[in-house]
């Protein structure tokens, strides 16, 4: 599995990171370097092995249904690049 320039552009778009055209090939090479190294995992026999998602082997703890948070509009908006009338203001996005 090797990453070409088109793939770099595609994943950069998925990740919403602009990559200048003159850097695409360099990034593809870097990613391929890392991915080639990672290929070594194919040597491991993983037949019948359950994937391990967490180092914690307990069930999900649950909380009671109570309103214990919120009503902190000014704190929520405090660090906003743009806010108005209690709303976050972001670039126009119409579907």
């Amino acid at each position: 599995m090797s990453v070409d320039d088109a793939t770099v552009r595609k994943i950069a778009r998925l990740a919403r990171i602009e990559i200048h055209e003159d850097k695409v090939t360099k990034m593809a090479n870097e990613l391929n370097g890392i991915l080639n190294w990672i290929e070594m995992l194919n040597e491991v026999d993983v037949n019948g092995v359950e994937p391990m998602a967490s180092a914690v082997a307990i069930a999900l703890p649950m909380r009671d249904d109570a309103v214990t948070d919120g009503n902190i509009q000014s704190s929520i908006l405090k660090n906003a690049p743009k806010a108005d009338s209690g709303f976050f203001v972001v670039p126009k996005s119409v579907e």
């Binding site: 309103v67 948070d69 919120g70 009503n71």
Partner: peptide, 17 residues
Amino acid sequence: SGASAAYGGDPNSHVAM
């Protein structure tokens, strides 16, 4: 989160971090 799930409210008032 523990923020209210009630309908309505001032914008961004039923919001936890």
